[in-house]
């Protein structure tokens, strides 16, 4: 096992599926930070569906399927869809956070399949926030 090797050497998966050193940790951090912040250019938007128990109970899976369906139908490949935990406002689930590159994340609440499809076409594709379903803009302070 080549511990000192450069993780960028092989394919991503190969390089990382091995025992990490402290240096490797930093490299993963840098590499994934870019994806995370929509910085490296191949994605223009990131949609996070909040799938804690509360979200799932309120119908987050349907929202997720509807969005994935909409993306497939439109042949969109430059939008990342990820699942995440509870967003904190369980009474307003299902929630989703839509972040277009270089813009503030927008949290949508009390979603269903119809609503997420509209958000897909108006916000993700069209660039204008669907005010009726939106709750808030921005992300929380953490220090």
């Amino acid at each position: 096992m080549n511990k000192g090797g450069n993780p960028k050497g092989g394919t991503k998966k190969e390089a990382f599926m091995r025992r990490l050193t402290i240096d490797d940790l930093k490299k993963i951090k840098e590499q994934y930070e870019a994806t995370f912040t929509l910085r490296h250019g191949s994605y223009r938007a990131r949609v996070t569906i909040h799938m804690g128990t509360c979200g799932i109970a309120a119908g987050a899976r349907e929202v997720m399927s509807a969005l994935v369906e909409a993306l497939a139908e439109a042949g969109v490949k430059d939008v990342v869809v990820t699942a995440s935990g509870c967003a904190g406002l369980c009474s307003k689930e299902p929630m989703a956070t839509v972040e277009l590159a270089g813009q503030a994340p927008v949290k949508y609440c009390q979603l269903d399949a119809q609503k997420i499809k509209r958000i897909f076409s108006e916000h993700i594709q069209g660039g204008s926030i669907v005010q009726e379903y939106a709750l808030v803009m921005g992300s929380e302070t953490s220090y």
Partner: peptide
């Protein structure tokens, strides 16, 4: 802007996320 930002809403602006800093942000 019609949509409020988090710093204007008490639900968000009175909170400080430490233990929950990755809450709803990362794919677990």
């Amino acid at each position: 802007k019609v949509l409020p930002v988090m710093s204007e809403i008490p639900f968000f602006n009175l909170q400080v996320l430490r233990a929950l800093k990755n809450k709803g942000l990362i794919d677990p």
